[in-house]
Structure formats: structure tokens, C-alpha cells
């Protein structure tokens, strides 16, 4: 294909954009590494997983720095909410497209769009005054892994629903006409034609929401109880890595502060692992 001058200019401009966008994460990574260096040097990596507990206020020699329970907390809250939100979100999108009368679908979409913008503080606030007391009646103390999973599910659902919705919108109309011509039923069409065609978009939505579930801070902090322990039941309080940073960062100094950046670094590593796993699993063809 021949290329005009404007095309070449365009491509370089776009490459600049992409380079800037891609560099941000490197900047953040470098920043985290620099800030967590003191703790990594004074405390050492192994102690972050083998120490007796998390009491970092004293300096490196006396404090204890076990982050493992919070890593479990983060992973459990994330997987629970993703497992719940994915079917609900995809179901919502399917509802909008193939089941609801168009007026209801329009209203439903607007509702979901709104939810994407409700501040996490509001979800957390609602969770704290409504949800947690409800769970407490079921099984004390109330603030728990379960509360965290429910709130996270509600928070990330709009993302996956809107992304799935966009993906379904993009399914070519002739596929649907073809399915109709073959006499496929509604669900048969959705399962056999729509889902395979919209897979890429839906997976993108799921990856994005997984990221958000890992990164969510304020709401989780308000409903999870924030006790540093490995939960044995769904009613046990937990603390996630993000809540750990938010709770203590403003009050931390020295090695404690640096250890909180290690929490951030672990979160980043977690996401790198997730993203790579997704890529290996699909052999790099998720987006293709």
C-alpha cells in the first residue's frame, strides 16, 4: 500500500501517543521500586512472607512484616467478586440486547452507566450502614470477606456489563440473521453465535474488572474489617493489600512506609502475573 506524507506523520504521532501511554506503567513501577528499596534492603523479601504478623510500626529489626494474609485477602475478595460479577454482567448485557423490550433496555443501560460513576466511598458507606449489620445478624462480627465480595461485585459489575454490552453491539447483524434463518432459538443463537463472536470484547471486560477488583481501595476498607489474618470462613474479617496502604500510609514513616510500598509492588506483580497468564492461556490471541 502506498503511503502519503500525512500517513507517515500520522503513524509517528500515534506511536508517540502509544509510547507515552505505555511508559506510564513503567514510571509507576520504577517509582514503586525506588520507594520500597529501603524496606527490601532492611527487612528482606522472605520476611514479608514468613514473619509472625504485621506490626510494622517499630523499625525493621523489631517490627514484623508478614504480608501473606493480606495477599490471600486480596486474592479471595478478587476471585469471589469476579466469579459473581462475570455472569451477572454478561447476563445484564444479554438481557439488554435480546430479552428486554427496547424501552426497558434503554433504562437499564442508563442505570448501569450511572452505577459506573457512583463513588466507591458511597458504596462503602452503604455497605457499612446497610450490608454489614445485615451480615452481622447472620453471623457476627459482620465486616467480613463476604461483605467485601458483595460490595466489590456491585462495584465492578457496571464495567463488565458495559464492556459486554459494547461487544454484543458489535456482533455483525448478518450472523444473527443467519442464525434466525437456520431456525435457532434465542438462547441457541446467543450461546452458539453471539458469545463466540463477542468473546474478545467480553474477555477484555473481565480482565479490566479483575484489575479493578484488585485495585479497589476505599469501599473495601470500609466493609472488610481490616483484620490482618488469613480467613478460614467467608464471615471472617480480612484486610486487602490496597486497604493496608490506604489505612496506614498517612501514618507511616521510615521502614513502615517503605513496607507499604512493597504492598503496592506485590499488587503490581500480581497484576503482571494475571495479565501474562491471560496471554499464555490464549496464546496472545485474546484481542485478535
Amino acid at each position: 500500500m502506498s503511503r502519503s506524507r500525512s500517513d507517515i506523520f500520522l503513524i509517528w504521532a500515534l506511536r508517540c501517543c502509544a509510547a507515552i501511554a505505555g511508559a506510564i506503567v513503567l514510571l509507576i513501577g520504577a517509582f514503586l521500586v525506588i520507594e520500597s528499596m529501603p524496606a527490601l534492603q532492611h527487612v528482606g523479601i522472605t520476611r514479608f512472607f514468613t514473619d509472625a504478623s504485621w506490626h510494622p510500626s517499630a523499625d525493621a529489626s523489631q517490627g514484623t512484616f508478614n504480608l501473606a494474609p493480606m495477599l490471600w485477602g486480596t486474592l479471595l475478595a478478587m476471585s469471589g467478586s469476579v466469579l459473581l460479577a462475570t455472569p451477572l454482567g454478561i447476563g445484564s448485557a444479554v438481557f439488554c440486547h435480546y430479552y428486554a423490550p427496547s424501552s426497558i433496555a434503554k433504562f437499564y443501560r442508563r442505570l448501569i452507566e450511572l452505577l459506573a460513576g457512583i463513588p466507591s466511598v458511597v458504596y462503602g458507606f452503604w455497605g457499612l450502614v446497610v450490608l454489614v449489620p445485615l451480615i452481622r445478624q447472620l453471623q457476627p462480627p459482620g465486616p467480613s470477606l463476604l461483605a467485601g465480595i458483595i460490595i466489590l461485585t456491585i462495584m465492578i459489575l457496571p464495567t463488565v456489563a458495559l464492556m459486554a454490552d459494547a461487544a454484543l453491539t458489535n456482533v455483525p447483524a448478518q450472523y444473527l440473521r443467519g442464525a434466525a434463518a437456520l431456525g435457532l432459538s434465542r438462547w441457541g443463537t446467543i450461546r452458539g453465535v453471539v458469545f463466540p463472536a463477542a468473546k474478545s470484547g467480553i474477555i477484555t471486560g473481565v480482565i479490566l474488572q479483575t484489575g479493578r477488583a484488585i485495585g479497589e481501595t476505599m469501599a473495601i476498607l470500609m466493609v472488610c474489617g481490616n483484620v490482618v489474618q488469613t480467613p478460614s470462613r467467608i464471615f471472617d474479617p480480612i484486610r486487602t493489600l490496597t486497604a493496608n496502604i490506604a489505612l496506614e500510609m498517612a501514618y507511616a514513616g521510615g521502614d513502615h512506609r517503605s513496607a507499604l510500598f512493597v504492598s503496592g509492588l506485590i499488587l503490581l506483580a500480581l497484576i503482571v502475573v494475571l495479565v501474562s497468564a491471560a496471554e499464555v492461556h490464549s496464546k496472545g490471541r485474546i484481542y485478535g
Binding site: A21, L27, G215, M249, L268, V275, E279
Partner: peptide
């Protein structure tokens, strides 16, 4: 670029704040 954006999507908001 894609991978770094995927990672960026998962960076906790509080880390963005500190950064």
C-alpha cells in the same frame, strides 16, 4: 503497549495517588 496498559488498569488507585 497492550500488556503495560493491562497492568496499568490494575494499579490500585491509592498507588496512582502516591505516584
Amino acid at each position: 503497549v497492550r500488556r503495560s496498559l493491562d497492568v496499568l488498569a490494575g494499579v490500585p488507585s491509592i498507588v496512582f495517588g502516591l505516584f
